[in-house]
Amino acid sequence: MHALEFRQVSYSYGEGEFRIDNLSFTVEEGEFVAVLGHNGSGKSTLARLANGILTRDGGEISVFGTPLDEKHLYDVRREVGVVFQNPDNQTVASIVEDDVAFGAENVGTSREEIGRRIDFALHAVGMEEYRHATIARLSGGQKQRIAIAGVLALLPRIMIFDESTAMLDPRGRREIMEVIARLREEKKITVLVITHFPEEAALADRALVLNRGELVMQGTPAEIFSRREDLLTYNLDLPRIGSIEQALNEGGMSVSSTLDYRILADEIAKELTCGS
């Protein structure tokens, strides 16, 4: 059983407007998948289709075997949490605890259980100390962690991050990527990261590339980023490390196409010290 399955899904914003076209892919339980694409490639639409905020025009979507239809909308939504881009526009309350409670209150069964969910969620994002803090006074990265906690309180098995780091500074971005890694390792949550930062996609098990609503590439991040010409056609950023590797190889060295600068440093060091 797949954690998430899209079968020939299509969606249009209206006559002639942009759409998702015949999109099929699967995500397995516990997997970390990156979705890459330029602005307007349909990658954000994908997140909204997956939990039924947008309704597809055709095809099938299922989550752990449950079809996303009118009858199961809220069951699916509970399983698929989405964290959005803007850290300022996702909170409904002024105080951290009240905001994290919001989702739990929508689906929770008792006060005690909601309390436990809040504890769990704040712990998972490392924000327990801020339980009674005013959200408006937090940093961008902290606000985004609260947004993640608010979604986690629904106890989803899949989390989709829709460019959730795009509006943060490098420190905030690192904070969020660390939280995502922890959710995956400790809570065994299936993760879909929608991004245009190659450094973030590099951390995934698998990457999908969308272009004009179509799935055009699929593979491990290393495979995807080694196809440099293709990425350029789809208007995607090449990881800076890739251009260095390419230039070194063209200059007569042989380094692999790794995305980890430490490995590259090792290989360069080996080439320079051992000689030819």
């Binding site: 959005f84 919001f102 989702g103 309390g115 947004a147």
Partner: peptide, 19 residues
Amino acid sequence: LAEAMDARCYMAGKKRIKY
């Protein structure tokens, strides 16, 4: 905000348990 509330399973009119 409406999208974020939707994503957190808010259903207008449905009784919510207050924490």
